[in-house]
């Protein structure tokens, strides 16, 4: 079930990022003021340990990449060969539109846009149907949240929902 994989740039990059992140955490730990009062251990110990552990683990992973000991389940290997980055970017776009406009346009409209974009990214081409479903769903969720559960969400400029 588990196979050795050959040297991969992606795996090497991941190992390097983990190593660098560990260095960063350990370095940043200096910025935490240490309070040596009645306490024996200050607030620095855990961050320092976490940083050092990530440095070590990143190094081990990097070594595993070089020696080919990084084991993956090959189940989804084939799918990994043809990534659909367009879908990734479309979803990202949807999320950022929501983030930027939720205060101005209200929750229902921007989230309906997000729904339609994600459905499009997953290959649905019936945009009108998706938009209708999403508006109904988001309006229902909005009413449930604000009227029944007593929580607040920004309404659209038109009021009500």
């Amino acid at each position: 079930m588990i196979k050795k994989s050959s040297l991969s740039r992606g795996q090497f990059f991941i190992s390097l990022s983990i190593f660098a992140f560990g260095v960063y955490i350990a370095y940043q730990t200096r910025d935490i003021a240490d309070t040596q009062g009645y306490e024996q251990l200050g607030p620095r110990l855990f961050p320092m340990l976490t940083g050092l552990a990530l440095i070590l683990l990143g190094a081990v992973l990097g070594w595993q990449t070089i020696t080919g000991d990084w084991r993956d389940t090959p189940q989804e290997k084939k799918a990994h060969k043809c990534p659909d980055w367009k879908a990734f970017l479309i979803i990202t776009g949807g999320v950022f539109v929501q983030m930027a406009l939720v205060k101005i346009l209200g929750f229902v409209i921007v989230t309906a846009v997000l729904f339609t974009t994600v459905a499009y990214a997953f290959g649905s081409r019936r945009v009108l149907r998706d938009a209708l479903i999403s508006l109904t769903l988001c309006a229902a969720a909005f009413l449930l949240f604000t009227r029944v559960l007593d929580l607040s969400l920004p309404a659209s400029p038109l009021g009500i929902i």
């Binding site: 939720v102 997000l114 729904f115 339609t116 499009y120 990214a121």
Partner: peptide, 19 residues
Amino acid sequence: PRPLLYAGILVFATLGTYG
């Protein structure tokens, strides 16, 4: 259908987070 399922999951994910 999968597109609607994942679109719905993301709607509830952002609803729960923003809420």
